[in-house]
Design a protein around this nucleic acid. Structure first.
Lengths: 215, 215, 215, 215
DNA sequence: GATGAATGAGCGTTCATTCAT
DNA sequence: TATGAATGAACGCTCATTCAT
């Protein structure tokens, strides 16, 4: 048997980091479509174009694999939102920028993040991971509110702020779900609507008030 | 062997209606704790104090059983909210009463409904059932908003109303999750907070405004 | 509670013999349609309009029930064929009458006997029952042949006769299956064809010979 | 712990093709003995010396497995009969060769094919498969008859030929059953007897005629 | 590094069969 | 007599996970 001449690219023996990304891509895709339990390691491996033992060798258990997906997607999202809201801006501008960044991300990763996020709920093993991510979001929002309050010399109970932030985050997630389910909807427009509800509240909306980006 | 004193009830040979409720109770409990997939029919049967075949005889397949749970809990919730908001009241009063009824129900069925609701998302087979329930809620809220608008001679696009209502429902569900996770929290108080966010919006909240029940 | 006045027929409390026939009717029907294993006692009981424990009380185990079906149908068939072939007639006439009686019976009990018979094969527990029935048929045919031989002063080995008879019975059963599968086919015509093959053989058939009833 | 001497074959990690044959062997055996329904996948797997999941991985569902058995055995039989009857020979010679090949095959696969064939009847899911195989046999026989008729310038209705062929095939199958149940019987002799009945018919047999191979 | 071969363990479902009324 | 209620015991099938090459 002669040595194989390595001229044409064989698409094999890729460096580990690349392989891992391929696997994560496949995993995110399959988990999104089927849900955590219904997803099978076989399908993930096949979709990644790789054999099952490799998946185990690189990313470990099914649970660990799912957590890895959560982490990667979560990190990406956080980075997308990160610098969106500089503390020196007024509160509404900060909120607006954050929402726009968030819905922009969800719009771009519809069947990736949004659905995957939807899966993490309800599967206890990942309650912790998810709670952590949401807590970070809630903290950001609560921080905004707190900052704005202090700027006017007032203060609020911690729980109160947290709960308000929680509600805002919840409403936002809910609209994100809606966005993920309506492929033709416009992220920017959705963000605007969310901003209206969040900032003005139903009372003023009914009274005819409207919030619009850029004043 | 002493004669068995037939004082204590034997808990056997109960009529079908009773057994069905026992099974549904057990199913709600187990589905809540483990999630749909992780829940096993064995555990549900055992928890109901009955053998597995009876569960199949009365309530059918695992999926059918889950749907039955969804229906029972959903119906209970809808009934709890039902007459809460009479159309002749002003919009904020209607919203408030609806929220109070909702959080009251969730508070009373913490590990029942709220968690079960949490499970239904993400499991494709039940998308329909859940979407239906949520749609009814969204319709109710959108109806409130629309009614209030028309009362003032104004009008709004249908999609806009729906999206706003969607956001409000989402925020509410989110706080319901929060309530379900905080056993010591007070449903009434949570409803009040939700009302503040929903009605006043972050803008007015930051400006120091507060909404309080009864004026 | 007053004594129930037994004016209108309640269709209950029927005498045992009647009930048993109802059950057997239902059993034959269900076994035919589903096959022995696929048939369920539930369906049989329901089809008989009676509760399952009654079936067990009257006809015993599922196997026993099937055997009871076999016996009833087998007996009916044997009776239908019984006097068909008087020994004093010539052999071909006897054979013809037997075949006509047999196909007549099968034609009238298409989905009853024929299919049920088809089920008994392959289910070992009933090998004995079925073998017995077929043995009786084979014996009848072999007896015919033997009688005809002796009438001419000749004789044949027992095995030879048995095997020939076996082949004839097999061919006949096979055409019975065919008849059962072709609802529009005419039993009389089928019997004639069978008679042609059996009596003349392929050789003479190819040579243009034909056998016709009544000379 | 002594070093394991690797002399005896381990019988593990065999290539797929080999394992598939082992499984089919085991399946044919178990299906034959127990019948389709009574056979359990566990027993088949154990008999094949392999775990159940491998059976599913390679051969699929129980039904698919049975069909695979049917196909393998059916193909083998057809191949055994295939070239047996060259068209240029006279009809009786062709029939004789076909019968000899058939009984030879059945004699060699007693508990394999014959019993398995016996199982396929009556189990509705396989009606199609079996009907197809029998149809091919019937066609072959009908073709022989038709060919012989045309050679003499005569013709016969299609249905007539088919029914006659059906009867012949039925008789043959029946004797095959008999052969499978009598382990000591001689296939060749059985073929001869069948040939006598089929070719000469009962009439000539009773009149003392005899057909013998080779003139 | 990479994979085909292999399995332990478990789950959903069904069914013949029997109490207790 | 007649039945609704109840179950033990299997069976088909799947899947995450690991050897051995």
């Amino acid at each position: 048997m002669l040595a194989r001449v390595s001229t044409a690219p064989t698409f094999k023996r890729l460096p580990r980091a690349v392989r891992e990304q391929q696997m994560l891509d496949a995993a995110v895709k399959v988990f999104s479509r089927r849900g955590f339990h219904a997803a099978s390691m076989d399908e993930i491996a096949e979709d990644a174009g790789i054999s099952k033992p490799m998946v185990y060798a690189y990313l470990g258990t099914k649970e660990e694999l799912f957590v890895a997906c959560l982490h990667r997607e979560g990190t990406r999202m956080m980075q997308a939102i990160a610098g969106a809201a500089a503390p020196e801006l007024p509160a509404d501008e900060r909120l607006w920028r954050g929402l726009r960044a968030f819905f922009g991300f969800v719009g771009a990763h519809r069947d990736g993040w949004a659905v995957l996020y939807r899966q993490a709920r309800g599967e206890q093993p990942f309650a912790g991971e998810l709670a952590g991510m949401r807590a970070r979001l809630v903290d950001i929002v609560a921080g905004m509110l707190d900052h704005a309050l202090r700027a006017e010399g007032r203060e609020a109970g911690e729980t109160d702020l947290e709960v308000v932030a929680y509600a805002l985050v919840g409403a936002t997630e809910s609209l994100a779900d809606w966005l993920a389910d309506h492929p033709d909807a416009d992220p920017e427009k959705t963000a605007t609507r969310m901003m209206n509800v969040a900032w003005l509240g139903a009372g003023q909306l009914l009274a005819g008030a409207t919030w619009r980006p850029g004043r």
